[in-house]
Design a protein around this nucleic acid. Structure first.
Length: 338
DNA sequence: TATCATGATTCCCA
DNA sequence: TGGGAATCATGATA
């Protein structure tokens, strides 16, 4: 409690009441000054503040019950994880998303980031401006009525809590926008897009070139993925599908196989032995373009292809053809199993 | 618009 | 955990 002389206090209260009665206004500067300069002014001010503190403000004390808002923390964490808040990570959908989608996703995420930061900046500006305004207003008011610094701080805190609610809304709607964007692009992952013709060529060449063991190693998959400009998991999917479908539709697959073998062999015939992965003899390779490369198998139209050609089995010279036969045998054995 | 082709997903198994 | 098999979903084509 502030130490005061009761007589002086009464005198000052009288002065205040007198001033109030006379409806203190801007023109009454003499009275104002009188009040401001009164030796007991500060003492009375302190007493009134203390009383006010005890009677009114003790009922609610929000500053003491101010734990960190868990919702806000969750939103903050999420925004940082998604790359909207904090350092710009560029956004990522994981390895399954195709390159074009990734870029599109990143661009849209960047837009959200820009809008979010802009709104956040505006919010902070407004919050500061309003807080400052209230501070100075209360400070002015404290000239005339008992407002302690503590009360001003409390008021500022209340204002900031209110603004915090707006901030939560902003963060919430930003999170929602990111979620919508994310789900849209993850759904787009299911959108099937055919690989380029070149990519299919590369994959088929590898498949038919390794028919005896059409299971590319991780390194081979990575290499194929690079060549085809697709992901390793797409390569795995492709080989998984290809093996199954080759087995299911052998006749058609064999036609395709002969096509690829012919293509490869024609290339070898032109280019000689250099770079021939199958080690085929050039002469036989040239013939392979006309013959069924999967000799031991039944290929539609095989007889026509053989017309006028000596009846020899190319697979003797071509490991690829041997491999095809082996794979065929393997498939037959698998199918024969109960 | 129906049908086929094909990339992706899911479930199960060794 | 990788692969087989079934299935889904969508693109391409007649």
């Amino acid at each position: 409690m502030v130490g005061t002389n009761p007589n002086n206090l009464t005198e000052l209260l009288d002065a205040v009441l007198k001033i109030n009665e006379q409806a203190l206004d801007d023109n009454d500067s003499t009275k104002k000054n009188e009040l401001q300069c009164h030796p007991m002014r500060q003492a009375l001010f302190d007493v009134l503040c203390e009383t006010k503190e005890k009677t009114v403000l003790s009922v609610r004390n929000p500053v003491d019950e101010a734990p960190e808002d868990p919702q806000l923390m969750r939103l903050d964490n999420m925004l940082v994880a998604e790359g909207v808040a904090g350092p710009d990570k560029g956004g990522s959908l994981g390895s399954d998303a195709s390159g074009g989608d990734q870029a599109d996703y990143r661009q849209k995420l960047h837009q959200i980031r820009v809008v979010y930061n802009e709104e956040l900046r505006k919010y902070e500006e407004a919050c500061n401006e309003f807080t400052q305004h209230v501070r100075s207003l209360l400070k002015d008011q404290s000239q005339l009525r008992p407002i302690a610094q503590k009360e001003i701080e409390r008021m500022v805190y209340i204002i900031q809590r209110k603004f915090s609610g707006i901030q939560v809304q902003l963060k919430q709607s930003t999170c929602e926008a990111v979620m919508i964007l994310r789900s849209r692009f993850l759904d787009a992952r299911r959108k099937r897009r055919n690989f380029s013709k070149q990519a299919t060529e590369v994959l088929n060449e590898y498949f038919y070139g390794h028919l005896s063991n059409p299971y590319p190693s991780e390194e081979a998959k990575e290499d194929l993925a690079r060549q085809c400009n697709i992901t390793v998991s797409q390569v795995s999917n492709w080989f998984g599908n290809k093996r199954i479908r080759y087995k299911k539709n052998m006749a058609k697959a064999q036609e395709e196989a002969s096509l690829y073998a012919a293509k490869k062999n024609a290339h070898v015939a032109l280019g000689g032995m250099a770079g021939n992965p199958y080690g085929m003899l050039p002469g036989a390779a040239a013939a392979a373009g006309l013959l069924n490369p999967y000799g031991p198998m039944n290929i539609p139209g095989q007889d026509a292809l053989h017309m006028g050609m000596p009846p020899f089995d190319l697979s003797v010279y071509n490991p690829q053809l041997m491999a095809a036969a082996q794979y065929q045998q393997q498939m037959d054995n698998t199918d024969a199993k109960p």
